[in-house]
């Protein structure tokens, strides 16, 4: 595969990732959010595999496989089971002001690109153009985390943020050393499990997964 085609494909995947990040920002259904999260993982895995193929970095195949198993299969499966058990499968959140959120999101993308620009110039990877997108999707997930008021979407935002970081690692450096990636994956998995247990405790104590009902500890 020629280098220019590879670069174009990488850019295509990156833009898909950004698109999904925006879609998540505006998505009100919990179920659709999980689907979007799974798609994001799939794009990420494909992109990693592509970079592995183009650059002959064999450890990236493992990390693509890891992404596929963890982010496309395992985590969405856990989340699906969770929303079934919590009976929030058809939950729709009321999000105020989606247009404003999207506009701020566009601003974040511009910021992300500006911050990443001087760094991408230093990089020699085929993926260097996408560092800005990676940073932008981290910022967008951060924004999603702030705007959401329910526990499950907040955690999906958190996981999406980790996706963005993973993408940043692949685009700037062809991925972190495998041992680190395994560790991060383990943390994410354990974190999701703990979150799952935690939501039940929250429900038991508050009869709600609405963070607004939970926030009582204020500084007096």
């Amino acid at each position: 595969m020629s280098a220019s085609l590879a670069t174009q494909l990488v850019n295509l995947f990156a833009s898909l990732l950004l698109l999904i990040a925006f879609a998540m920002l505006a998505q009100r259904r919990v179920l659709s959010l999980i689907h979007l999260f799974a798609w994001q993982g799939a794009v990420l895995a494909l992109n990693t595999a592509l970079v592995a193929f183009v650059t002959h970095q064999h450890h990236l195949y493992y990390s693509a496989l890891l992404t596929l198993i963890l982010k496309v299969i395992l985590l969405p499966w856990i989340l699906h089971r969770l929303i079934d058990k919590l009976n929030v499968r058809w939950d729709v959140e009321t999000l105020v002001n989606i247009p404003t959120t999207m506009l701020i999101g566009v601003g974040l993308v511009i910021i992300g690109f500006n911050v990443a620009m001087p760094i991408s110039h230093l990089s020699e990877t085929v993926t260097r153009g996408t560092l800005g997108i990676a940073l932008a999707s981290v910022l967008l997930s951060f924004m999603m985390l702030i705007t959401r008021r329910k526990a499950v979407p907040q955690v999906i935002g958190f996981l999406a943020m980790e996706n963005g970081l993973f993408f940043a690692a692949t685009s700037a450096t062809y991925g972190m050393p495998l041992v680190v990636e395994l560790g991060v994956a383990l943390d994410v998995l354990v974190g999701t499990f703990i979150f799952g247990i935690f939501t039940f405790h929250l429900r038991e104590a508050f009869d709600s997964l609405d963070i607004e009902h939970i926030e009582k500890l204020k500084e007096r």
Binding site: V138, F142, L145, A151, Q154, F158, M161, E162, L165, G191, I194, F195, F198, H201, L202, E204, A205, F206, I211, I214, E215, K216, L217
Partner: peptide, 21 residues
């Protein structure tokens, strides 16, 4: 498992998670 402790743990989980990201 008191409401206050659950809230504290949630805050800890999310804030430190985001921070450490």
């Amino acid at each position: 498992r008191t409401p206050a402790s659950l809230e504290a743990a949630w805050k800890y989980f999310i804030l430190c998670g985001v921070g450490i990201a």
